[in-house]
Write a protein that binds this DNA or RNA. Structure first.
Lengths: 137, 137
DNA sequence: TTTAAACTCTACTAATTTTACAGAATTAAT
DNA sequence: ATTAATTCTGTAAAATTAGTAGAGTTTAAA
């Protein structure tokens, strides 16, 4: 399941994607439109900025805007940024690989192969969902 | 990601699937073979029993055995039993449906449609992975 | 009928993660 | 200077997860 954070991040990105290009959205504006606690959203937008998905303008009349094209922001990207691995176990993950501490021989693990298959399929599906595809209905 | 509980449940089921039919496995035997804390495993096996995936024989020389065919136990089943919904949000779930509290109009929600697509695809993938398919390499 | 060896059940606890909130610092426009 | 915004760090409550404890129940066999 997605965490609230990821869900809020997606809703914020959707809001930004719906604005005119060059429009700069204040945090409070996004928070109200998308029903997100403002202080929590501040953190999320900072994370999105560090992930280079959004840009910001500081100071008075500042705010946030999409940095990447909405076609280039996928559900997989945002999931990885906030919730981490797509795979069901770290040992089956591409970007968050970690060995299982209780695993004697990874190549012998019956579970791992199946989980890699799942990861490949869900990843493909999640990469197919972009902010753009969500916005256009 | 899978919880430890789900991972342990799968490992326990894999162990049971590898035994001869009619063989009854003691909890301690499974725990040692699959590196699972015994007391934790007891709970897990009880849950698997309540889910009708395994059966048990009580008393001396008792233990656990597969109740369903290993072809009929899917990753989706076990995920649902221990970790709940396959979908990324409750509002996109079949078996664990719940309305989002912050959602004004569900039919208008841009996120939900995409998440339903994802759920359909991951569910199909997870239903394709059975204990049998995992055991036979 | 007693004992041993197993499952069954409920409750508890510790650690971790999630979900925020608070407030000071910084930046930029007027 | 002042105002209005982002930025940064730290804190805290709530929920979840992972695991432990211990008493109870069942069954087989001596």
């Amino acid at each position: 399941m997605l965490s609230q954070k990821t869900k809020y991040a997606l809703k914020a990105l959707l809001y930004l994607a719906e604005q005119d290009v060059d429009h700069i959205s204040k945090t409070v504006e996004i928070a109200e439109a998308a029903s997100i606690p403002k202080k929590f959203l501040e953190q999320i937008l900072l994370d999105l900025k560090r992930g280079h998905f959004v840009g910001s303008k500081q100071g008075k009349f500042g705010g946030y805007y999409l940095l990447k094209s909405k076609n280039d922001i996928t559900l997989a990207d945002i999931h990885r940024l906030f919730d981490g691995a797509i795979a069901l176990l770290p040992c089956a993950s591409l970007n968050f690989y970690e060995r299982c501490s209780d695993c004697v021989d990874e190549s012998e693990c019956l579970l791992r192969h199946g989980l890699i298959t799942i990861r490949e399929e869900t990843l493909k599906a999640m990469q197919g969902i972009t902010i753009a595809s969500l916005v256009k209905k």
